[in-house]
Simulated assay, not measured.
Amino acid sequence: MDLPFSENYQLSDEFLRPTGYHKAKSSVKFDAAATLPGYPNIHLADTTHAASFIEKALCARDLENISSQLWVLTTQSSANINPLHRQKIKGREIVITEDPRLHLVWSYTRIFIQPLPRYLLSHAFWEVYLLHDNSPLGKRRDAVHKAAMGFLRTYHHLIQHESDFSIAQRDDHRLIPKEVTWQAFCQFMQKVSEIQDHEVSGRYHYGEIRLSRLNRYAPLLLHSRYYEQIHGQYAEYFARFYGPMLFVFAVMTTILSSMQVAMAVDQVASHRWSELWPFFRWFSVLGLFSTLVVAAFFVVVWLWMFTDEWMFAFRVRFAKKNAVEDVK
């Protein structure tokens, strides 16, 4: 395992190397005052708590567990990540999250992004926690290392221009520490951009993921009612059903009204306006037929979009498998 950046280009030197880290087999011992960069309440001397915190901050267990099925939910490419300026163009609000499960998960006009932790910008942190044979992370070291590599690589895609960098450092985002400069960030990212899929965890073989799809497939893949509940009230939850319900109601109302008109014309006994009866009858039939055609059109369009997405997913999956076999 290699470090994704050199010590000369590290963006943080706040992590204090513990005693004994030079020796591969010896245990590392932190000073009682040493804390995790960016988290003064996390004392490194309490190795169990610190290791648990770091693992939870970097590993998205739900997505890792279903990483082999994520091709069903999103484009099978780790580069499927829009830079921050493109997120703005798409009308998405950048919402800060500290939950790795939500990193790069988007919902309609929002995308959740986890800020870059200060400790991941430290060369010493990578040496001690993610590379040392006797890492405080223990058996989880390799898994956390791959998750950290994948997470770090996402910022190569998120920040590709100086405008992206400016967005990331806005006071309402703070995705990157304020003291980091654009030039220093570019130098830091030189080797990060070369990270390959086999070096990262399964979740980071993919980029952005739509929350609505995660929630839809959660009962099947995660055996849970939903992946993430973002509706705070019942009204917000049921609001998404209003459109389809009104559409069905309008279709049924139009059909029933057309049928009622057709039947009423046949039952009229008076001969007044008899020359208009055929018009009324055929107009009601035309309205009924048009309503059915429109309803069928929307159903067909939905089925076509659904089928097209699955066909695209299969094509990409087979292409990636063939590419791997060709390399072998």
Rank of each mutant, 00 (worst) to 15 (best):
G202S: 09
S212Q: 07
V261E: 02
R213A: 02
E208I: 01
Q233T: 15
Y206P: 01
G207T: 03
A235K: 14
S201M: 01
Y227M: 03
Y226C: 06
V251A: 04
E194F: 04
R210P: 00
E194S: 13
E194D: 12
N215D: 05
D266G: 15
H231A: 03
F247I: 13
Q196M: 13
M245D: 14
I230Y: 03
R210K: 15
I255L: 14
Y234M: 11
A262Y: 01
Q233V: 11
S193P: 02
P219D: 03
R203T: 08
H231W: 10
Y217I: 00
A218R: 08
P219E: 09
R225Y: 08
R225K: 14
T254L: 08
Y227N: 02
V265P: 01
H223P: 01
T253I: 07
S258R: 00
N215M: 09
Y234I: 12
L214G: 00
S193A: 13
Y206F: 15
E194K: 13
P244I: 05
E194N: 11
H223R: 13
Q267F: 05
D197K: 06
A235V: 13
Y204Q: 00
R203L: 04
A250C: 09
D266A: 06
E236Y: 01
V265A: 02
G202V: 05
H198K: 07
R210T: 03
E228W: 08
G202E: 02
E199K: 12
S224E: 12
L222Q: 05
Y217T: 01
A250F: 07
L256Q: 11
S212M: 03
E194Y: 14
A269E: 15
H223A: 11
I255C: 09
A262I: 07
M245C: 11
P219A: 08
T254Y: 00
A269K: 15
Y217H: 09
